[in-house]
């Protein structure tokens, strides 16, 4: 009798487990890649929907030995993110392990990039970048690739360029004026005489990164006069931010 009850309980557990799997299978996602040139070491990232919290996800780096046994080398804490993608930068190798980049979305217009590598014999996270999209860019004049983190698309994207310094990615946008000069020309074509001052604030940041302070100043002055001309409809906060940016630009020029 007790054995039968046990079997019924086991069966009920399996039914509940299958029901849960079917419910979440549609939105759950798992990606896995082997580290290039390092067979046996793999990186896996999963994400799963959770009622009320959105999604949870985790990154796991593990090693499979010749006898088939596996051990975890590093695992991240749980995070509210989803749609993982794994990339590697084979040109950057730390203690024999190529650098891994795991991109996860945190929203329709936002995401994060975990940089994972080996340091002092341990697999660790070497940094986390924020942005809505990430590119690995190879520039002619540099040996190592850069990471471009695209930011603030809902106003005007001001990408940030990150350089590898041997142990982590450092923001180095100011060292690439040509990149921003090209972007500035493209963005100018998108704007009209009615463009809001808050968009022009971002355009001025791009002009500044292109190395043209006079242009940045001109953009800010134009933004200020446009916002002030709106009268009652003017956004006080935008005006305040433009004024602060103008003052800071003037102070640094003098």
């Amino acid at each position: 009798m007790r054995a039968r009850a046990g079997r019924v309980f086991q069966f009920a557990l399996i039914v509940v487990w299958l029901a849960l799997c079917c419910r979440t299978a549609k939105a759950q996602s798992v990606v896995f890649k082997q580290f290039p040139g390092r067979e046996g070491i793999g990186i896996l990232c999963w994400s799963n929907p959770v009622e009320g919290a959105g999604f949870i996800s985790q990154i796991v780096v593990f090693q499979t030995n010749h006898n088939g046994s596996t051990r975890i080398l590093w695992e991240s804490s749980l995070d509210n993110s989803y749609s993982p993608e794994i990339r590697f930068i084979p040109e950057i190798v730390l203690e024999g392990l190529p650098l891994a980049l795991v991109e996860r979305k945190t929203g329709a217009a936002s995401g994060e990039l975990d940089v994972i590598g080996r340091k002092a014999g341990r697999v660790v996270v070497l940094g986390e970048l924020e942005g809505f999209e990430f590119e690995i860019t190879r520039l002619e004049y540099a040996k190592l690739p850069f990471v471009v983190a695209h930011q603030d698309a809902n106003i005007l994207d001001v990408p940030e360029i990150y350089r590898w310094n041997g142990s982590r990615f450092l923001e180095d946008s100011r060292s690439h004026p040509d990149y921003y000069r090209e972007l500035l020309a493209e963005d100018r074509n998108k704007l009209t005489k009615d463009t809001s001052g808050v968009v022009l604030l971002n355009l001025a940041r791009i002009a500044l990164l292109s190395g043209d302070r006079a242009d940045a100043r001109g953009i800010l002055e134009s933004a200020l006069s446009r916002e002030r001309s709106k009268g009652d409809e003017a956004d006080k906060e935008t005006i305040r931010r433009i004024e602060v940016a103008l003052r800071s630009l003037t102070r640094n020029t003098e």
Partner: peptide, 18 residues
């Protein structure tokens, strides 16, 4: 507070609650 407006490129993308 203040609000910005989603850019068109995000139309059809998955939001944080799926």
């Amino acid at each position: 507070g203040a609000a910005s407006i989603y850019a068109d490129k995000f139309q059809g993308r998955k939001t944080a609650n799926g």
